[in-house]
Each structure stands twice: as structure tokens, then as C-alpha cells.
């Protein structure tokens, strides 16, 4: 018999996912995080994380409460600007970049 779960908030899942993408981008841009800090940036990984965050923010911002929309919009802009400042000549990654890590 299946185990029952009382609730599952997709809104919180979305917020956590965007935050995770933004944190990953910041980490791969060499910016600090709460857990630690990396000095070695990775443009491709940062770019992929920014694309993930922007996809969710772009698609879901019309359905977000205003404080959340403003917060994520500002955070995404900051990460994008940091990317442009750190990797001004970076090219778009090629198809096949995203593959099964397993």
C-alpha cells in the first residue's frame, strides 16, 4: 500500500530550484557561497546554471508574487552582469553539452 504524504508545494520547489541555479552560477563564477568559496571559475557550468535560472524566471515570473519576482529578477541580472564581466568573450556552448552525468 502506498505511503501518504500530506502536501507538496511546487511553488517552494520552484523557488528552491531557481536559488540552486543562481547559487551554482555564482559558485562557477568564483563568487562566494554560504558553504565555501571557489576561486576557479567554470564559464560553461556558470552559463548552464544561468540558462536554467533564466528559463524558470522568464516562464514563471508572470505567476510570481511581486516580491519574489523582483528578488529573482535582480539576482539574475547580477549574475548575468558578473558573467559578462568575467567572461566577456565567452562563446555559446555546443549542442551535447548537457549529458547524463551517470
Amino acid at each position: 500500500m502506498a505511503q501518504m504524504q500530506s502536501e507538496l508545494h511546487v511553488g517552494q520547489l520552484v523557488a528552491d530550484a531557481i536559488n540552486a541555479f543562481l547559487s551554482a552560477a555564482a559558485l562557477h563564477l568564483g563568487m562566494g557561497s554560504q558553504e565555501g568559496e571557489t576561486r576557479e571559475g567554470n564559464a560553461t557550468e556558470a552559463w548552464l546554471a544561468i540558462m536554467g535560472a533564466s528559463a524558470l524566471v522568464s516562464e514563471l515570473s508572470p505567476h510570481m508574487a511581486e516580491p519574489m519576482r523582483l528578488y529573482f529578477g535582480k539576482a539574475l541580472d547580477e549574475v548575468l552582469q558578473a558573467f559578462a564581466a568575467r567572461y566577456p568573450d565567452e562563446v555559446v556552448p555546443l549542442p551535447g553539452l548537457l549529458s547524463d552525468p551517470a
Binding site: 511553488g11 517552494q12 523557488a15 508572470p62 505567476h63 510570481m64 508574487a65 511581486e66 519574489m68
Partner: peptide, 9 residues
């Protein structure tokens, strides 16, 4: 204007 479907973190 947000619909409020998503809530602030």
C-alpha cells in the same frame, strides 16, 4: 501583476 501563485522564498 503577479497572480500570487508562487510565494516568496
Amino acid at each position: 501583476r503577479g497572480s500570487g501563485l508562487l510565494f516568496p522564498p
